[in-house]
Write a protein that binds this DNA or RNA. Structure first.
Lengths: 225, 225
DNA sequence: GTAGATTAAAAAATCGATTATTTTGTCTAA
DNA sequence: TTAGACAAAATAATCGATTTTTTAATCTAC
């Protein structure tokens, strides 16, 4: 996939790619206030990095949609809005539904194994009572695995981007264990339907899953305003 | 649309945004060889800009998908492939079809006027025998106008991105006047169907339009390899 | 000859300082 | 008071030089 975003940079990566990954996580995880203007000098200290790599990371994040750049007045965290949340959720419905159907048509047995593994890891992390980012990462990974063999690099790319945007809403507040459990069960049902190659039922469930997630995100958003 | 790419920066914009716009045009217009490694120092001279703003522009283009960035080894122009062209075309079918249906459902009379105007300008430019980028710009503008009132910022954003990618293939070689005329007629038929609010027929025509464009792009790609 | 090590040249990434622009605060005149 | 002008401070953008890493070239041991 020659066009995908750089994979997370380990200790060997450049300063720019490391701060990009870190900032992306923090932006998606709600560590910044929506609408906030970023104080570049403060970020320099916070992420222990020089001005040049920092600015390069900020530029990438702006092109990716996690920041807004205004000429001569730096970078801000994009505002949140009900309309945009609705937009993002609807786009997720269309695109992840499409991707899931294709993945079910194309996925091989290696995919089946990966999917089971991803679901298992996610469930385990849930039991181990979610220390920080761990569950979030495995959750992202699960959804990524689910649609991975859809055959379209661009579809996957857009879905990833939409997930990041969606999570800015979903992760506004603290955990909601009640709904969470319901959503977790759907993950396993999704695996089952995928293994049975029941595209229609899987898509319906995916729609429901996204819709329930949307309700969580909307509640968070409304509480947060 | 708080999240869209920066609008073209006039003389008042920053060096970074100006070189971004320029590079974007050149990349889409096939002024670079696919797969080519970019010599940053050469670009500095070519675009008359310092290293910092240039690198910021390159970073944005990489996040946008018009460049590939490899840690510690700079930037390259993405390779072209048949598979990717197919992917892009299929995504265009799905997304522009969706956008057009929604635009027809939502567009008001101002949109109708804009659409007629955009189509007219495009036709005129065609008669005036296309001096350089002019036709390309009006063509982009026409397609943008067509789907503009679809109501989804993210859908529009993705379509824009796909157009840029698609045009890397379509604009590989010289003009093809024969097919071009056929495609130009479709632009007017699209306007007509849009004004009649015939979503179904409009979408069918759009599918055909994209399919014909795809055939042009594919031919160009195959000749170019 | 050829794989592997060594060095020299080139290129990428980063730093520290400078310049340009915006923002803030203060003052003045209606 | 309050709109507008001005100056001072803060911030953004850019430059030029330095450091780091990769690439190319050369050499050596088998």
């Amino acid at each position: 996939m020659s066009n995908s975003l750089p994979t997370p940079a380990g200790p060997a990566g450049t300063a720019s790619s490391r701060v990009f990954d870190h900032l992306r996580k923090d932006l998606v995880g709600g560590r910044f206030v929506a609408g906030e203007k970023l104080a570049i000098n403060a970020l320099k200290d916070r992420y222990q990095v020089g001005l040049s790599p920092l600015r390069e990371a900020l530029n990438k994040l702006a092109a990716y949609g996690l920041l807004v750049q205004e000429n001569q007045r730096g970078f801000r965290v994009p505002k949140l809005s009900r309309d945009e949340l609705d937009d993002i959720a609807q786009m997720r419905l269309e695109m992840e539904g499409m991707a899931l159907e294709r993945a079910i048509a194309k996925g091989d047995s290696l995919w089946e194994a990966d999917l089971l593994a991803a679901a298992h890891r996610l469930k385990r992390a849930d039991i181990t009572l979610d220390k920080g980012e761990e569950w979030e990462h495995l959750h992202t990974q699960f959804h990524r695995t689910l649609v991975a063999p859809c055959g379209s690099v661009w579809l996957l790319r857009f879905i990833e981007q939409l997930h990041d945007q969606f999570d800015r809403y979903r992760r506004l507040g603290p955990k909601m264990p009640t709904i969470r459990q319901e959503l977790d069960e759907q993950h396993h049902q999704l695996v089952e339907l995928a293994l049975q190659r029941d595209a229609k039922a899987a898509r319906a469930l995916m729609d429901d899953h996204i819709h329930k997630s949307y309700e969580v995100a909307l509640k968070r958003y409304q509480e947060h305003v």
